[in-house]
Design a protein around this nucleic acid. Sequence first.
DNA 1: TTGTAGGCGTTATCAT
DNA 2: ATGATAACGCCTACAA
Lengths: 344, 344
Amino acid sequence: MKKSKVTIYQVAEAAGVSISTVSRALKGDSRISKKTRDRVRAQAAELGFQKNAIASSLSTSSSRIIGVIVSQLNREFLSSLVHSIEETAFSLGYSVIICQTNNSYEREKAYLNTLSSTQVAGLIATLSLETASFEHFRHIREQGIPVVLVDRVTEQLPNITKIVTDDFQGAYRATQHLVGQGYRRIAYVSGPTQQLLYHDRLRGYRRALQDADLPCREEWIAYSDTLSYEDGPRLARTLLQQPQPPDAIFTANNLTAISIIACAQDMGWDIPRQLGVIGFSEEPFSALMRPSVSSVPQPSTQMGQLAVEKLIEEINCSDPEAFIHQKIMLDVQIIARESTRKDG
Amino acid sequence: MKKSKVTIYQVAEAAGVSISTVSRALKGDSRISKKTRDRVRAQAAELGFQKNAIASSLSTSSSRIIGVIVSQLNREFLSSLVHSIEETAFSLGYSVIICQTNNSYEREKAYLNTLSSTQVAGLIATLSLETASFEHFRHIREQGIPVVLVDRVTEQLPNITKIVTDDFQGAYRATQHLVGQGYRRIAYVSGPTQQLLYHDRLRGYRRALQDADLPCREEWIAYSDTLSYEDGPRLARTLLQQPQPPDAIFTANNLTAISIIACAQDMGWDIPRQLGVIGFSEEPFSALMRPSVSSVPQPSTQMGQLAVEKLIEEINCSDPEAFIHQKIMLDVQIIARESTRKDG
DNA sequence: TTGTAGGCGTTATCAT
DNA sequence: ATGATAACGCCTACAA
């Protein structure tokens, strides 16, 4: 049953040419006459020839595969980012391998190895939450594999293209929005601050309070390692059961915001009158919740597209040493919804 | 900068043995003495040797990569399924390539080609919504690549392992639950019924109504090609603006349920008193919505694990002709929440 | 414009 | 227990 594979040898024989002619005809090498090219292609199609990508990569020591490493897929931002990466890559003739680290440093290292030994043409990655050392990335760069970091990036890896949202600015605007709505005791739920983006968001929050002459109390800043909805109840309790609780919460992601809203409501809080809530990122449900949830959406589609384009630029760069690495920072706007409409 | 790759040749030279010895020592061939094995391995580690997976696949014409084809990733069921596949595969020494078809038949065919020319060891797929012809799957089977279909399957592909939830039973139980809660005019939102699972869910709904001696009106059955939350408003209007509207809605997925609830509330309906809503599948938000949303969760973790295990069984099967293909149907239970508590 | 032949890094089949 | 050598299928200088 296992159909014997048809190789360029059978095509060559059937078409009455040599294998190099077949190889060239198939890839449209200009040296081959249109006539033979068409004949060879017809034969190949006839025989159901399919190029063995493995053999091809071995020979060229390169592939048309882009490796993508993400922490998780069940966040709208990330699945949408991956989707955009895939669309763009596909349209440019590349395939995509997606790997989930599940925020584990070990898994991240393992996948980096797998991908490098699979000879991916390049790599797009968002760092896992756990990642604090970066040798594995340096190592893969030394093998000449271009890397683009997206969203979760680090300053400790120079000479790597980075694509991020302006996290400082986004957090600043979200906080400012709460202030503008009349909230005065504004709390913040942060992710692990060794991650640059959470560090930046925290800075944005602090600066906005400072610029508005509002107090920034340490007990109004809660930290979550996972920012998952499972962590919502704990966070809600931590912040809301204080002697002097906040009257608004800004969270480092929207999932946490949604979870906290549900918990706060169960605890009897009136959202948004007693408590305003806004979260970074955006989930499809943000608009469907009642009250609908204000957010700081990230331009995932644009980020994915840029990531692929920059990566392929570097892949095709004739002189890798000379390639100029950029850090691209995309602007973000907030979406104000019911959850921050104090006088709704 | 591009580090010259270290191959088994350099390891062999450094260890003072032949390349075959290196190859065997590395994979723990029993013929090699422990002493040389350890020495070779130490040398390999020292030199930073990494096996070239491409060369290895070319030589063995097989790989340790499992291809996964899914329609989308931004559904909890699918991202959770993929996650489970990945965990299981990883623990069994396989890597995973994930491809999104975005429910396009053309994309599905394209990825099948890519994967077959990448010599994946096997394939796990959920059919795209558009897919109605299956030649591409027959074709890849003829190449000797084992395939496991999950969730979205078809009876038109015999000799392929299939893993599904008991869609008929799940729909039956969901409808029965609505009846038990006192709802009498029960509507249904279906996906495209050329897909077996939507066909089965519709059957389960019909049968449950019949068994309860309740009417099954065609105008209470709405169809959605996408079952996306964008389609919610249209569905809500179609069903609720009838002269005699239903008093409960069962939807073929939970996302649609959530979206319809939001729309119905905006239209002034009291959920669950005037309108009960339950949906197939489960989103993380189902429990967080107010009212929380009843659902028919699918055992994604178990399905992913089974899919990988069955696939690898078939990959390792010495006589592929003799492999017995199963259709495994997993039972589902409903989760009753506030959205169907009529007398709450 | 086309053909020949060597190489990509591993595995596997023979020998030894 | 180890070594030499021929595949695996394609690509690409170099020749013609």
